[in-house]
């Protein structure tokens, strides 16, 4: 079912990781991605991996949830791995079949690349699993606030993003419902050739669009009748505050960055 898509899902909780300020988590995630791209050696990967495992343990997110989030991307990871395996040239030839030669360096790069993608996805999954969409956009808005000086409509963008995030589950649910209703009238969405399939989508898409527009209209009316007029002078229900745990987390992040850069310098 469509509902089983876990990417971008939020698992509510009360662990330290859940309670961190969304800004901290956003910064740490960016830092983590940078780390992954600086890391070149097994040792530095080990450091990054350790950091990730500790964060996952602290967040009490189940391994199963992480695996199911990785599942849709297995193909991507495999292809990247294979491409690297076959196209990396090196000095230590491992074996040669027909025109394809595999080098020891290729194996190494393939494994590291696959690992890098998996670590990348797992890290971002952890962010969305432990941070509600509202917090996420609040944090993003705060972080991007300086851009307001450059006339970037930060508040409007983040409002649009929260609304979109808020309505994705609703639309998925709606799609499910309409699909079921048409199936009950004998519709078949997964048989026939591509043209028949496209035609079969019509009974789904028309009601879906109509309901999306209706919702947008209702939401706009509801916001206006509560005097929404953009970000000017608007206060927050939940004011974001950096606590001690946030500073500690950020310090750990910076120390890791220094460590990985040092490892790279030392060529380890």
């Amino acid at each position: 079912m469509l509902k089983d898509i876990t990417l971008g899902q939020f698992f509510p909780g009360t662990t330290v990781v859940h309670r961190l300020d969304p800004r901290t988590k956003l910064i740490l995630t960016v830092l983590y991605i940078v780390l992954l791209f600086i890391a070149v050696s097994w040792a530095s990967y080990g450091v990054v991996f350790l950091f990730l495992v500790c964060s996952i343990c602290l967040s009490r997110i189940r391994l199963k949830a992480i695996l199911s989030g990785l599942k849709p991307l297995v193909i991507l990871i495999l292809i990247t791995g294979l491409l690297n395996l076959f196209y990396t040239r090196g000095e230590h030839l491992l074996f040669r079949v027909w025109k394809i030669s595999v080098y020891w360096e290729g194996v190494r790069t393939a494994v590291l690349m696959a690992l890098r993608i998996m670590l990348l996805i797992t890290g971002t999954l952890l962010l969305t699993y432990t941070t509600s969409p509202i917090q996420l956009t609040d944090g993003l808005e705060k972080l991007l606030n300086p851009l307001k000086k450059l006339r970037v409509p930060v508040h409007e963008l983040s409002m649009m993003m929260s609304i979109a995030l808020r309505f994705i589950p609703t639309l998925i649910e709606e799609t499910d419902k309409i699909m079921n209703a048409q199936k009950a009238r004998g519709a078949e969405f997964d048989t026939g050739n591509i043209f028949q399939k496209a035609k079969a989508m019509l009974p789904l898409l028309v009601p879906l669009f109509i309901s999306a527009f209706r919702r947008a209209d209702e939401l706009a009316t509801a916001m206006e009748s509560r005097c929404y007029h953009g970000g000017e002078g608007r206060t927050k229900l939940k004011v974001l505050r950096m606590e001690r745990r946030d500073w500690i987390a950020l310090t750990v992040g910076v120390l890791l960055l220094v460590l990985v850069i040092l490892l790279r310098r030392l060529g380890l």
Partner: peptide, 16 residues
């Protein structure tokens, strides 16, 4: 599906 007809809640949303 043809022998057990199911009318969902708010079925008007399925008109197309």
């Amino acid at each position: 599906r043809g022998r057990v007809g199911l009318v969902f809640q708010y079925p008007e949303y399925q008109l197309f």
